[in-house]
């Protein structure tokens, strides 16, 4: 059972194909604001690399965020259209889960943080469990200082991963028990997406292309302003 994974939550766009045998082909490209140009050719490329046709895909997995809105929608629209055209189900996975999964062998409190722009980050906490990680809290949006004080209060040894940690490294560098994972692992991995989606697909935890939606965590500015004026 082959799975196509599509990941566009940060400034990096990635895609991968895999199945029982693990990841067969994957590619990532970091070029901000060019997700729409890069993604479809990248999918075509990994199919060629894997020597297969898209028609062999049985599940389309997609990173549903949180992350940069426009990037997420490029990935979602692409993934949903492919699933629709192939008449196959989808699996949605959070960008923060994708950051935590590759560092799952650490016993520390794993904290995934994605740059949310405007001086904020999206973040969640994870613990190692057999075969992966378990998310301890729903993703939230807040300032890097909010996260720093939560980490201080928890008092655990912390492994901090994600481009949100690098963007605001000055906030986290001084914290005694916090180690920031290197930049090479600071964006969600499409290969992890395929691996996590494979487990979900085996359990038949599917979603349909007309129902799967991004995790925004922020309302549009106009809506916030309107509500403020009318409350």
């Amino acid at each position: 059972m082959f799975i196509l994974g599509i990941e566009t939550a940060t400034e990096t766009a990635g895609c991968a194909i895999g199945g029982h045998e693990g990841v067969i082909s994957s590619t990532h490209c970091s070029s901000p604001r060019r997700h729409a140009e890069n993604l479809t050719p990248a999918i075509e490329f990994i199919c060629k690399q894997a020597g297969m046709s898209l028609s062999e895909i049985r599940t389309v997995a997609v990173d549903v965020g949180p992350g940069l809105f426009t990037g997420l929608r490029v990935g979602l629209a692409t993934a949903k259209a492919i699933a629709f055209a192939l008449r196959v189900p989808m699996v949605g996975v959070s960008s923060l889960d994708l950051l935590a999964f590759p560092v799952r062998f650490s016993p520390r409190l794993i904290t995934a943080a994605i740059d949310a722009r405007r001086g904020e980050i999206y973040y969640s906490f994870y613990r190692q469990v057999p075969g992966g990680v378990q998310r301890l809290s729903d993703p939230v949006v807040g300032s890097p200082e909010d996260l720093a004080s939560e980490l201080l209060a928890a008092g655990d040894e912390v492994l901090l991963v994600g481009d949100g940690a690098h963007r605001y490294c000055e906030v986290f560098e001084g914290l005694a028990k916090v180690e920031v994972v290197d930049r090479a692992n600071s964006t969600p991995s499409a290969a992890s997406l395929v691996q996590l989606a494979h487990a979900r697909a085996l359990r038949e935890e599917f979603e349909q292309p007309d129902a799967i939606e991004p995790i925004y965590l922020r309302r549009p500015d106009a809506e916030i302003n309107w509500t403020t004026r009318h409350d």
Binding site: A36, E44, V74, A77, K80, A81, I82, A85
Partner: peptide, 19 residues
């Protein structure tokens, strides 16, 4: 609108690739 256009363009290219 760029963000609006990108939804349709992405879906259309994905359909063309798949079919």
């Amino acid at each position: 609108l760029i963000g609006a256009l990108l939804v349709g363009v992405s879906a259309a290219k994905a359909l063309a690739l798949t079919w």
